[in-house]
């Protein structure tokens, strides 16, 4: 898993960490029950405050991506987890909405759009 931080992006560092871990989980790059780097190790590696890594992990836990086992570490929850599924559903919806919008602008009707979707899925 890759975690890098940018000091010029304007996005808070905890947010950057959160997003990168999240996308690694959603893409399946890190799997269920895999352990994340420890809070203090990650803080040291990235040269940031322990409180910042703590905040990233805490929010990931609240969103249902990881679970914190006291004294052991932070583990990735299964992708079957209800919350993660919810997140993925929303993401799919958002992307479909974007596709519908573009299609309307291009004058593509619903039938044609569904056909396109089927073809793309077959190719995949």
């Amino acid at each position: 898993m890759k975690i890098i931080i940018s000091n010029t992006s304007g996005i808070p560092i905890y947010e950057q960490i959160k997003e990168q871990i999240k996308s690694a989980i959603l893409s399946g790059e890190i799997e269920e029950n895999e352990m994340l780097p420890s809070l203090r190790q990650l803080a040291r590696d990235l040269k940031i405050s322990v409180l910042t890594t703590t905040r990233a992990y805490t929010e990931l836990e609240q969103e249902g991506f990881v679970t914190n086992v006291q004294g052991k570490g932070c583990y990735v929850m299964g992708r079957g987890s209800e919350l993660i599924r919810e997140q993925l559903l929303r993401e799919t919806e958002d992307n479909l909405n974007a596709a519908i919008k573009s299609a309307r602008r291009a004058g593509i009707d619903g039938e044609e759009l569904i056909k396109m979707l089927k073809i793309l899925m077959e190719e995949d």
Binding site: A43, I48, S49, V50
Partner: peptide, 22 residues
């Protein structure tokens, strides 16, 4: 900016801020 978790900012002999850096 990098590693501190907490900050205490003293100015003119008084504490201006103490708490988490972020």
């Amino acid at each position: 900016d990098k590693i501190a978790d907490y900050i205490t900012f003293i100015n003119n002999g008084k504490v201006f801020y103490t708490g988490q850096k972020d």
